[in-house]
Amino acid sequence: MKKTLSRNQTFLLITIPILALFFCFNTLPLIKGIIYSFTNFRGYGNYDFVGIRNYIDLFQDARVGKSYLFTFKLAVTSTIIVNVLSLILALGLNSKIKFKSALRGMYFIPNILGALVVGYIFNYFFTYILPAFSSMLGGEGQSILASEKWAWIAVMIVCAWQSIAMNTIIYISGLQTVPLDVYEAGSIDGAYGFTKFWKLTFPLILPFFSINMVLCLKNFLMVFDQIMALTKGGPAQSTESISYLIYNNGMAGGQFGFQSANAVIFFIVIVALSVFQMTVLGKKEEQL
């Protein structure tokens, strides 16, 4: 390097190659995916453009509809349960307790573990341990993983087990931002217990609540590993998540084009939901 580059030249030389890399492995496949969604490509061999046929079929396909229903049912209920539980847990872990940091550390463990292996461990738990417990208590002793009606609860429990850890840590850091004099002022005004939480604490940690809602919903909508380890979409396709269906039928099932259309719709849904959540929750924060 004999001639030193000007500041602007340096910036350009940094930005352009990295942008090119990003384009090549993010935008380009995205565009290709959208193009494939208008074809009858099976993943191999020749293919033709079929217009919006895939999209029309998509909305009439019972299996796709079922997977959207399952994924949303799972995402919404898990998001609610996880946020309620982790808020309670965070309040506990943030109060004057003994072994505070040890307890916080322990409660975070589920989050660092790989979802697939956790799924396998819980698979065994649901298949052998839980039925044994329930038959001891006079139940039927059947695995909930084998039940079309209840298998999704098992998926939810495993998802929740891991994400409660994450959300709790975020709530704790939110609770630590609440200044102590707010509580002092509150106790003069007679705010205790639940009123204190609802009127004082909760509004102050609302930004953290919105982070958690966005994170949770997005993660649960993309659920894949847990399904792979627990049910593989069964029984009777009752726990087939959107990602799992796209993977399963698109990669191995010869529905490359059709599932690309599914993925495009899924992409639009994720973007729309994220934008919606951020504007709604953003407005609420401003009001306070």
């Binding site: 492995f25 380009l28 995916g33 796209i246 992409f267």
Partner: peptide, 21 residues
Amino acid sequence: LYIVSGMFVPFAILMMPLVKQ
């Protein structure tokens, strides 16, 4: 904005084209 908006792209849509690519 271009790079950050990449956060919303689910892996599911990139997966199949990326395998080929």
